[in-house]
């Protein structure tokens, strides 16, 4: 659950994954695409917790003065 901040490690990615991605020029893009696909898999789960009727909900979220 808890992840320590990394020290002295260079660049890239969610911590503690095995192996260091070598920085061939395309690696960043490949990684980004993979991440996006994984995230798409999470959307179904998020769909199920999103407040229903987004339009009305967002319109109703009105705050009073603050600092």
């Amino acid at each position: 659950m808890s992840t320590q901040p990394q020290r002295g490690r260079s660049a890239h990615g969610p911590g503690d994954e095995e192996g260091a991605d070598q920085d061939v020029p395309a690696a960043g893009n490949v990684q980004a695409t993979q991440q996006a696909q994984e995230l798409d898999g999470l959307l179904d789960e998020i769909d199920s917790v999103l407040e229903s009727n987004a339009e009305e909900f967002v319109r109703g979220f009105v705050q009073k003065g603050g600092q």
Binding site: M1, S2, T3, Q4, P5, P14, G15, E38, L39, L42, E45, I46, V49, L50, E51, A54, F57, V58, F61
Partner: peptide, 29 residues
């Protein structure tokens, strides 16, 4: 707009930040 707002919902079951953490996508301290 809903996703923007709900990202900051403090409830672990509803907050989208908390969902990302649970999916192992965000680091905690």
């Amino acid at each position: 707009g809903m996703i923007d707002l709900q990202y900051a919902d403090v409830r672990p079951e509803k907050g989208l930040y908390h969902r990302l953490v649970r999916a192992g996508r965000m680091r905690r301290l």
